[in-house]
Amino acid sequence: MNSSICCCISLPKVFFVAADNAGMNRDQAQSLIDSIDAAAVAIVTAKFGHFDDLDSEHGDVYYKATVALLADHDPDLYLPDLWKIVGL
């Protein structure tokens, strides 16, 4: 998994309600995180020819792609929800 997907976000507990309702187990959540990460890296690579997780422009495109891909999967699910399920 790409380390840039694991940024620190501090949110109130109310934002984690969707994780309880997502019906996902740990393996399913980790699989979703991994597939979204791979797709976001592919998007950045297609745009720039390579992926540099230290480049802010690459990071912005990666972040937007990650959020969009997750919203496409389930508009009521957020990264902190997935992180909670997998124990991050």
Rank of each mutant, 00 (worst) to 15 (best):
S56H: 11
D37T: 09
D55A: 05
A22E: 04
F15D: 06
Q28T: 07
V44K: 06
F51A: 08
K13L: 12
S31D: 10
L32E: 02
V14Q: 13
F51T: 05
D74Q: 05
M24H: 13
C6V: 09
F16R: 10
F15H: 10
I5C: 08
T45Y: 02
F15K: 08
S35M: 10
S56N: 10
W83A: 12
N21D: 13
N2C: 06
D55I: 00
A68D: 15
S35I: 07
T66W: 02
D52W: 03
D27E: 15
L88T: 00
V61H: 08
L11A: 15
G49A: 04
A40I: 01
G23K: 04
S3N: 11
I9P: 02
V41K: 11
F15P: 00
A68L: 11
H58I: 04
Y63S: 11
L32P: 03
S3V: 08
Y62M: 02
A42I: 03
T45F: 03
D74V: 01
G59R: 01
C7G: 13
A42H: 04
S4P: 01
K84E: 12
P12N: 15
K13Y: 11
C6M: 13
L77Y: 04
V17R: 15
A18P: 05
E57L: 12
L32Y: 03
F16M: 11
N25T: 03
A29F: 08
A65E: 00
A18M: 05
G23I: 03
D20N: 08
G59E: 01
